[in-house]
Amino acid sequence: MCTPSIDVIRTSTPGGLALFNLVQKLWDHNRQPADVEEILDVINSRVCSPDDIDRLLRLCPRAVVLRNVVKLSLSMYLAKNHASQLGVRFTHWRCADVGIEGAAKRQLSPECIRLLDGQDCSKTQNLDAFLAFFPGCRYSFATSEMPEIGWCNNGLCTGVRLLLHPDEPADDVGKSFRRLENQPVGIVVRLEDADIGDVLMDERVPSGCVPVKQKSVRFQVRGPLGACCALASSCC
C-alpha cells in the first residue's frame, strides 16, 4: 500500500525506524487484531511522564487536538508558559459581548457571559472569547483579509505590539501579568512568510508587520444555552 508522507520520516535513526514501522502498520489494510493491540501499545508508550512535560514546556511546545472545544483553554495555558519562558509580561482580556433585542442593546449578566465563555469559536463566528498578548506570542488569523500576504484564515503570525484602548487605566507594573479592563483596539503582528517591507513608512510599525483591528460579529445562541442566556440576560 502507498504510505503518503512516509518519505519524510528519517528511517536512518532508531526512532525514525520505529515511527516508520508504526506508520506502515497504520496503513496496513490487512491488519490482524494483534496488530491493533501493538499499535495501541506503541502509541501509548509515548505518553508523556511529568518529567517529560516539564522538559517539553521549556521548549514552548504546541499541541494537536481533535476537537475545537478544548483549544482555547489549552492555548491559554501554553501561551502563559511561552510568555514565562520568554520572560515577558502576559496580558490578557475578554472580548466585548452585548445582547441584541431588536434594535436595542443590553448588557449581559455575568451568568450569561460565563455560559458564552464555554462556547466553541465555531459557534461564535470564529471569534474566541479570550485573547492574550505578549511580544512573541503566536497567533493565527481568524479572517481572510489579504490572502496575498498571508493574512488568511489560519495563517500564522507573531505578536509584536499592542494597541491599547484610550480609556485603559494605568498599568500596575507590580503584577506579573496584566488583565485589561477594556479590549485593545488592535494588535500589531509580524507576518510569517510575506515580506511586505516598510509599507506603513512609520517607525512605530516595524517592517513586515500589519495591525489587526478588532471587528464585530453577530451570532445567535439557540436551544438550551439560548434559553439560559435569555433568562440570565433578562435578570440583569
Binding site: S75, Y139, I187, Q220
Partner: peptide, 16 residues
C-alpha cells in the same frame, strides 16, 4: 434564542 454581538480582535492563539 438570543442574539449576541461580539467585538473581538480576529486572531486566535495558535498554540493548539
Amino acid at each position: 434564542k438570543l442574539s449576541i454581538s461580539r467585538s473581538a480582535i480576529p486572531l486566535h492563539l495558535s498554540y493548539v
